[in-house]
Simulated assay, not measured.
Amino acid sequence: MLPGDSAEDVRGKARDVWRRTIPALVVAAGLTDSQRETAIEYCLTVARLWQAERELSRTGLVVETERGNVKSPWVTIAHQYRSHFRSLVGELGLSPASATRITPPDFGGDDDGDVFD
């Protein structure tokens, strides 16, 4: 079972994803303040996907109802968040394929590209 089970765990996970991912995107991809909402959505999506996976670990893929055993609603939720995650990964350049389409920012200057110069 995955750890955690509260809304605070979701916020904490989103905060961790932000701290681990967004500063690198600012430097590597030139993520700007106007793209902040997409970055926030990415962090929340990762956290909610983890929440769905945690619930699936806890309750299983199949749940018992009055009508018998059915697919857990968390399976659908996880699938939807995973699909949204993939689209955000592409937008933010976080996959190897999408990273090749990201143009690093030009910080200006007359540097010839040598970091030790």
Rank of each mutant, 00 (worst) to 15 (best):
A99R: 12
A7M: 13
S57V: 03
V62P: 02
R15P: 03
D111A: 14
Q80M: 14
A52Y: 01
I40N: 08
D33T: 09
I22N: 04
L56P: 02
A7V: 15
V27T: 13
L2F: 12
L94E: 04
K13M: 08
L61M: 10
L61K: 07
L25C: 15
R54D: 01
R58M: 03
S95G: 15
Y81C: 03
E66I: 10
S98N: 08
D9E: 11
Q35A: 13
A24V: 11
E64I: 06
Q51G: 07
A29F: 14
D112F: 11
A97K: 13
T103E: 13
Q80W: 05
A78T: 03
V17K: 02
I102L: 12
D16F: 07
D114C: 07
Y42H: 06
D106W: 10
D112K: 13
R67M: 04
D9P: 05
R15M: 13
P96R: 13
P23R: 10
S87V: 08
D9Y: 04
A39Q: 07
T45P: 00
P3W: 04
R67Y: 06
D117C: 09
W74H: 02
K71L: 09
D110A: 13
A52I: 02
S34Y: 07
G113N: 10
C43P: 03
L2Y: 06
R36M: 15
R11S: 12
R48H: 09
W50R: 01
I22E: 02
T65Y: 05
E37G: 10
L94V: 11
A78C: 11
A7I: 12
Q51D: 11
P3R: 06
S95M: 06
D111C: 12
A78Y: 00
D33Q: 12
D110T: 15
F116E: 05
L49R: 03
A29V: 11
G108S: 08
T45D: 05
L56C: 05
E66L: 13
P104F: 08
P104G: 11
G4A: 09
E8R: 12
R15E: 11
T59P: 01
F116I: 01
Q80E: 14
P3C: 06
T45N: 07
S6N: 12
F85H: 11
R15C: 10
V26P: 08
L92T: 02
R86T: 07
R48P: 00
N69V: 03
L2N: 14
V46A: 01
V75P: 00
M1Y: 06
S95V: 06
I22H: 00
T65V: 04
A14I: 03
A39F: 08
G12V: 03
W18R: 12
T38Q: 14
L25E: 06
D114Q: 09
K71M: 04
E8D: 14
Y42M: 05
I22Y: 05
A52G: 07
S95F: 06
E37N: 10
S57I: 02
V26C: 12
I40C: 07
L94Q: 04
W74T: 00
V89Y: 02
H79P: 02
G60D: 03
Q35K: 10
H79N: 13
T32G: 09
T103R: 12
T100C: 02
A99W: 06
P105I: 04
Q80R: 12
D110V: 08
E41Y: 02
F107Y: 14
L49N: 04
D110Q: 11
S95P: 06
V26G: 03
R15Y: 10
S6C: 08
G4V: 00
Y42Q: 01
F107I: 10
